[in-house]
């Protein structure tokens, strides 16, 4: 029973991270029908900026005196950086290909993914960069025999805050409305005076902000980041987005949770070395039996 609760807690933590990344995939796919392969690398870049900020603050002694401020700064800088990165990515690799074939766009995304992960490797080296974890939020408490660390609480709480903010943004603001209408019909909304390019850029920026937060969270949770850390979570998060129904925000969160839980339970009860395999198998099964996902509507040829 304790292990079950423990797995559940770990699964939800991991699931929140996947959900944050999956939101970026699903928004971008919803608006330009592109699997943004470089999204995983943006997530990794967020993790790197987090560790760079925290190390800088740590070396100046700020982290010891103001741990909460330091963490907030790490998140904010990571988000800002990834926003800049996503704008550059969209402008350089995707905007010139608006009218090109889908295959060309996808290959361009793949190229950028390889470019970014290798760029990070060249900048920061091939080895793990350790978060100075000893200085903040080290406590833990027990619930029904299961150990919950404060980091896990912060991750889930942070993810919930971001998701609520995203929901408000998409449903309550003019920009959110522009996003939804561009996703629905780009030509029509352009005719109605919505700047499609600007809306697409904003979509990328929001996705990148969420991914950056996820990157810092993963860094805090596992204690380190690596240049290739974006690849596998990127695929899993995409699987989550598809599982939930691509283009659907609630679906992405749901899919992220499911993938996170499945991974943790599979690792705990079946075979830990095959945990990645389970995520891929879910992806394949979903695409085979219900390509529209759990929450997805009927998708026609032009979208799939």
């Amino acid at each position: 029973m304790e292990t079950l609760i423990q797995q559940l807690i770990n699964g939800v933590t991991l699931g929140s991270v996947y959900a944050l990344i999956a939101l970026g995939y699903t928004m971008v796919y919803g608006i330009i029908q592109l699997i943004n392969f470089a999204h995983g690398e943006i997530f990794a870049a967020g993790g790197y900026i987090g560790v760079i900020t925290l190390s800088l603050l740590n070396s100046r002694g700020v982290l010891e005196s103001h741990p909460v401020l330091g963490l907030a700064l790490a998140f904010l800088l990571a988000m800002a950086y990834c926003a800049f990165l996503a704008v550059a990515l969209e402008r350089v690799a995707y905007r010139p290909l608006r009218k090109a074939s889908r295959l060309a766009l996808l290959l361009s995304a793949l190229g950028m993914s390889i470019f970014f992960s290798n760029g990070m490797m060249l900048c920061q080296g091939v080895y793990d960069k350790a978060y100075p974890t000893q200085l903040y939020a080290t406590g833990q408490f027990t619930v029904g025999g299961a150990v919950v660390s404060y980091i896990q609480v912060y991750i889930v709480a942070g993810a919930v805050v971001l998701m609520v903010a995203l929901n408000l943004f998409v449903n309550r603001t003019r920009l959110g409305k522009a996003m939804r209408s561009t996703a629905q019909d780009r030509t029509m909304s352009a005719l109605l005076g919505i700047n499609a390019n600007r809306t697409i850029t904003i979509t990328f920026v929001i996705g990148a902000i969420l991914a950056a937060a996820a990157g810092v969270m993963v860094g805090l949770y596992y204690g380190s980041v690596r240049f290739d850390m974006g690849f596998v979570p990127g695929i899993k998060a995409f699987a989550a987005a598809v599982l939930g129904g691509i283009g659907n925000l609630t679906g992405a969160v749901l899919g992220g949770m499911i993938i996170g839980l499945v991974e943790v339970f599979a690792a705990g009860y079946l075979a830990s070395e095959y945990k990645d395999v389970f995520a891929f198998i879910i992806l394949i099964l979903v695409l085979y039996f219900r390509p529209t996902g759990i929450m997805g509507e009927q998708v026609d040829d032009t979208r799939v």
Binding site: V92, A93, L97, L107, G111, M112, F115, F116, S117
Partner: peptide
């Protein structure tokens, strides 16, 4: 990676 994007 860069070449792939540039080519596209």
């Amino acid at each position: 990676g860069g070449a792939m994007t540039v080519m596209m």
